[in-house]
């Protein structure tokens, strides 16, 4: 019984949140990694792209809610998501046309593009704050829980409850669908294949008649979709605050680099590595150990390795370790 309780407590506080957070990070890291693979720079504006997509979705969600349109037990934001994606696609295409294309034609050094993306980050950040303001916005509605702690206790008779929020379930399901679609696209369609070819070897791809502007456009469209989905899921699960999305940049980059920049599989693996280590290291293990330890040996303290405020430090340390010992990441990424 104690073992079961321990497992339930572990799932409730560590596994479920980490899986949801990991899916969000993985989606964000996929966007970063695609940009890196095909446009060959680290996009500092990615966090703010996520915020922008999420913001458009929120605005549509509010509009739907005001008209009385809901999605039953699911959050209305899912209905608004396609519109958010379209809005975000429009923004990144305009940005690419006005800003990035010039440097691409000049064949500017990657570091220049990084600085340019810094400018784009400023503008997007300003836009989001300008339109929706810098404050917290909650837009989740529908059922709150798939299964609440109380129901779970009543069902199983265990002392520990297991709560799964609807948003967590949606996050994982959506992430699986999106990733499956992405891999199908990259591996099976002609455009996807040309994208991979362009990423592997630009010159060879050009020689085989692949149109680079087309590849770049599709990349931006996919990245916008990924960023919006990631942003909306994160906002549903926690809450929407522009500054938080900027801060997500660090764990997202850590995920992409840990997995190997330019490798989509690596981005997903990296997302989960970072999420699980953040949650396990900042979780207070007292409860779980209390069930597992023999009588009288239960720990007194919280048994928390690091306070939750240091979760950025965790992703950073993992990033450093991987960079020092395996600079190309867990799955062979590229180094330009």
């Amino acid at each position: 019984m104690d073992l079961l309780n321990a497992i339930v407590a572990l799932s409730n506080f560590v596994l479920v949140p980490a899986i949801a957070y990991g899916s969000q990070l993985a989606l964000g890291a996929l966007g970063v990694t695609l940009i890196y693979g095909i446009l060959r720079f680290s996009n500092f504006a990615h966090g703010d792209t996520m915020a922008f997509g999420a913001m458009v979705t929120i605005l549509f969600t509010w509009w739907f809610q005001s008209m009385g349109v809901t999605f039953g037990p699911l959050p209305t934001a899912l209905l608004a998501l396609p519109f958010g994606i379209l809005g975000c696609m429009a923004l990144v295409l305009v940005t690419d046309r006005l800003v990035y294309r010039f440097y691409r034609e000049q064949k500017a050094k990657p570091v220049i593009l990084v600085i340019v993306s810094m400018g784009v980050m400023f503008i997007m950040n300003g836009l989001v704050r300008f339109i929706i303001g810098p404050n917290d916005q909650r837009f989740a509605d529908g059922e709150r829980f798939i299964i609440s702690a109380r129901d779970f206790k009543a069902m199983t008779g265990l002392r520990e409850g297991l709560a799964i929020k609807t948003t967590q379930g949606i996050t994982v399901v959506t992430a699986v669908i999106v990733v499956a679609l992405l891999f199908w696209f990259l591996n099976r369609t002609r455009t996807g294949k040309s994208m991979r070819a362009y990423s592997d070897n630009e010159d060879l791809a050009l020689l085989s008649g692949i149109n680079p502007e087309r590849v770049v456009m599709y990349t931006w469209l996919i990245v916008a979709a990924l960023a919006t989905v990631a942003g909306v899921l994160y906002g549903l699960d926690k809450s929407f605050k522009p500054f938080v999305y900027f801060q997500l940049l660090l764990p997202i980059f850590a995920s992409a680099i840990v997995g190997g920049l330019g490798s989509p599989v690596g981005a997903i693996a990296g997302g989960f590595v970072i999420a699980f280590s953040e949650v396990t290291i900042t979780y207070a293990w007292k409860k779980v150990l209390g069930y597992l330890a023999p009588e009288g040996l239960a720990p007194d303290g919280l048994v928390q390795l690091l306070s939750t405020d240091y979760k950025f430090a965790v992703s950073f340390v993992i990033l450093l370790i991987v960079l020092l010992f395996k600079p190309t990441g867990l799955f062979k990424g590229k180094s330009v």
């Binding site: 680290s42 660090l250 980059f253 680099i257 950025f312 950073f316 600079p327």
Partner: peptide, 24 residues
């Protein structure tokens, strides 16, 4: 000592992270 000698983007990410940690 740890981050230099890596690629330029990596130094950027490393310094971005260390700044957040110092503030934390």
């Amino acid at each position: 000592k740890t981050a230099l000698g890596l690629r330029s983007d990596y130094l950027a990410i490393a310094t971005l992270g260390i700044a957040e940690i110092i503030i934390a």
